[in-house]
Design a protein around this nucleic acid. Structure first.
Lengths: 146, 146
DNA sequence: ATTGCTATTGATACCATGTATCAATAAGGT
DNA sequence: ACCTTATTGATACATGGTATCAATAGCAAT
């Protein structure tokens, strides 16, 4: 459902550029996150990783998830089966919609959010440094089959 | 900083109307949440509760927090010192701003968010059932003292 | 007021999720 | 191929939250 596709090579390049070593665990996990249509927990990613790389350690996955989040390559989804699931990020598409029915993530253009933030700064006098917007509901596909 | 004040009696009435018994623990905890300007964790609320009511149990506080959240009287703040702090809710003021400097919550009128949701529904075809918006930054007061 | 029913509570034990430690491994520059 | 050191995997640990269950206390009816 993402309108842009995610390129695992770009993620490896991002790790490399940030001075991290490129390892097989990373390749494995990046592949898992980049191709998942659904929010994944670290535990789920661990299960998935061990299918292609059985000796993958649990702590390693948690460390990797943290690293990917810090680099802005994945983002945490709050309020959907807890607060510990992650989806890949897509540049310029910071408005996240999660379908409560099929669970898929859709990424929407951030312009309306940018406008809202601008408006709020003007109206309140606060300086807004970052924001979190998540939308939940029934996606266009699931509405038709209800 | 909340522009409306919160009335603990209304909360007790809400519990009563929902068929729950009104107890002293509830009064204690409602007072704590209704008067806090800062997001509080369950653990912090427990500490506060025991000052006026020493034998208050930990599990009771967790249960109460869950109940208040379910009733919509408090709301969870995500991404500010974890995902387990709560602020009281204020009707019609669903846009939450948290100052990263002083930690206080400010509540903003939801109209811009309602507009954004309407626009997104029209543009995407998704039906939006609920949303979560949090804004973080430097509040008007804290900017002046920087 | 007293009683009886049952929701709520407090104490404890428990579980899940995530983190610190540390020896072994493997990137990657030389 | 070698050396340095970041990364890994296994284990133990910490934290935050939940299940259990006997004791307590709301509240409605008498």
């Amino acid at each position: 459902m993402p309108k842009q596709s995610i390129n695992p090579e770009d993620w490896l390049a991002a790790l490399d550029e940030s001075g991290f070593r490129v390892t097989t665990v990373q390749e494995t996990l990046i592949d898992i996150f980049a191709h998942s249509q659904y929010p994944l927990s670290a535990e789920q990613a661990w299960d998935a990783a061990r299918q292609s790389r059985p000796k993958t350690g649990r702590a390693t996955v948690y460390r990797m998830v943290e690293k990917l989040e810090n680099l802005g390559l994945i983002r945490r989804v709050h309020g959907y089966q807890g607060c510990s699931r992650f989806v890949p990020t897509l540049p310029e598409l910071m408005m996240l919609f999660i379908c409560l029915d099929c669970g898929r993530a859709d990424y929407l253009d951030s312009q309306p959010l940018d406008d809202l933030i601008q408006h709020t700064e003007d109206a309140s006098g606060h300086h807004i440094i970052n924001s979190r917007l998540e939308l939940f509901g029934a996606c266009a596909d699931c509405q038709q089959t209800d």
